[in-house]
Design a binder for these strands. Structure first.
Length: 443
RNA sequence: GGAACGGUGGCAGAGUGGACGAAUGCAGCCGCCUUGAAAGCGGCCGGGCGCAAGCCUCGGGGGUUCGAAUCCCUCCCGUUCCGCCA
């Protein structure tokens, strides 16, 4: 959520920032929110004045009754009773307006960072680095999409995945499954220097899914387990962001950096049939996520560091890649500033988005109520709290990196060489060979 | 899933309708004492919103009442026992 106080102090600034997202209807929502906020302020003042009076009377009644002055007490009680009706009316109006304001605010996206590039959609996302490692001419043996080559190698068995679970589920087998797990290990080991490893729950409450921004607006994108009012996490970002929900963190403890390997579940409601071949888009996939809780001052350099970490993972695998920045029109709802890493897959002849690193300013922290306590130079706590900044990104998302490896490391004979960086995790497999009768190919 | 008992400040723990935003202890902060420290003594000491007045906050929500930490309803969470299970 954006700070509703900005609606009072800088409405024009909020609207100017949100206008850059290119959704005109948003501005009307902001105006409506400002109107509700002003009304709420007025109702609250009137309600509190009555409460104050009732509180005073109640204390007085207590005193009078102790002194045995029942008659005076009864007079005051009668007055208080009348105030009670008025208070109830104002209180329920307050609740209505406050709920309406919150609902509206929950749907209003974050303000883009001033340096985020303007643009209407993904075609406007500028390339900020690369392409790096791209061949001038791609040899023919790399021009085989992984859904063909991996299936032929017996390491991708989507036909049976679909039988088991339905469309858009994948299954890796043998060296393919080992490769997928190796990528996770690799991603974790690469970031263990500054991150605490966490194994969070995969099912979360509605409140948790609201904090990161998926609810209420994007409920259709997530799998719901209605009977138990739980949701399957679409990314480890969701549970990790809520680790410190409703807590106050010391500025001296920041940044707090965590990483997690988890499954990610996505209904892909709007994208059925698009990019669904092979490992490009699936309902369930594995990913290593990195996340930071930071002061506003620490956030920019952390963003840079996290992009560098995601880049290091891809570069370390020897894959051709480029880094793009997300323009204001293409940004996710919660994002303040965002970068993607794309890997080139020669078989599919496509740039695959394999990592997305974002700074959320205090947008998620306000929704999840993760606060920050500052201390002055003498180490004394400063009065009041503010919301922390959150940042997160995929350190390594398995499926598309897996696909890119299969396509970029394909040899002329159809086998796939395992990148050096993954060898320690591959149980000695250096090259994924085609199955043969002699080796006992799977049926 | 069933039963019993619980949920109060950073922690421990009193408080069963009014003098309670909350005893007491520990921790923390300031001062005295001391060469320094400990001990001792005196004082301060939860948080949110708000310019302020003030409002809110004893797990969450609702109710009763002039007035609720306290009574009622409900939900959540915890502990123990039973059941089930990895």
């Amino acid at each position: 959520m954006i700070d509703h106080r900005l609606l009072r102090t800088d409405l024009a600034g909020v609207k100017a920032a949100l206008a850059r997202r290119g959704r005109p209807s948003l501005l009307a929502e902001v105006d409506e929110a400002a109107r509700l906020d002003a009304r709420l302020l007025d109702i609250t003042a009137r309600r509190d004045a009555i409460r104050s009076r009732v509180n005073t009377i109640s204390k007085e009644v207590g005193r009078l009754r102790r002194d045995g002055d029942v008659d005076s007490a009864e007079v005051l009680q009668a007055e208080s009773r009348e105030l009670g009706a008025e208070e109830r009316a104002l209180a329920s109006e307050h609740d209505e307006v406050s709920t309406a304001l919150r609902d509206l605010l929950l749907g209003i996206p974050n303000l883009p960072h001033p340096d985020a590039p303007d643009g209407a959609d993904d075609a406007d996302n500028p390339i900020v680095s690369g392409p790096i490692g791209l061949l001038d001419t791609v040899p023919d043996h790399l021009r085989v999409p992984h859904w063909e080559s991996a299936t032929a190698l017996g390491i991708l068995d989507n036909e049976r995945a679909v039988k088991i679970s339905g469309a858009m589920f994948t299954m890796q087998r043998g060296a393919g499954a080992t490769l997928a797990r190796a990528l996770c290990q690799y991603g974790l080991d690469l970031n263990a220097d500054v991150h605490e490893e966490v194994r969070p729950p995969s099912l979360v409450s509605s409140a948790t899914l609201t904090a990161t921004g998926q609810l209420p607006k994007f409920a259709d994108d997530a799998y719901a387990i209605e009977r138990d009012d739980l949701w399957c996490i679409p990314t480890a970002e969701v549970p990790l962001t809520s680790i410190y929900a409703d807590e106050v963190l010391d500025d001296t403890a920041l940044p707090i950096r965590v990483m997690a390997h988890s499954s990610s579940f996505r209904r892909e409601a709007g994208s059925a049939g698009r990019d669904t071949r092979g490992m490009l888009r699936a309902h369930e996939f594995d990913k290593v996520e990195i996340l930071a809780f930071a002061t506003p001052e620490q956030a920019p350099s952390l963003l840079t560091d996290m992009v560098a970490r995601a880049e290091r993972a891809i570069a370390g695998l020897g894959l051709p890649y480029r880094i793009i920045e997300i323009c204001t029109g293409d940004m996710g709802q919660s994002h303040h500033r965002s970068f993607d890493i794309e890997v080139y897959a020669p078989g599919a002849d496509a740039w695959l988005e394999v990592s997305s690193i974002s700074w959320f300013s205090d947008y998620q922290a306000r929704r999840g109520n993760v606060r920050l306590k500052r201390h002055d130079a003498d180490g004394k706590p400063v009065k009041g709290t503010e919301f922390v900044h959150t940042l997160n990104g995929s350190a390594l998302a398995v499926p598309r990196v897996w696909a890119a490896i299969i396509e970029n490391y394909r040899n002329v004979d159809g086998s796939v060489t395992v990148p050096e960086a993954l060898r320690p995790y591959m149980r000695g497999i250096e090259c994924i060979e085609a199955p043969s009768e002699a080796k006992g190919a799977r049926p």
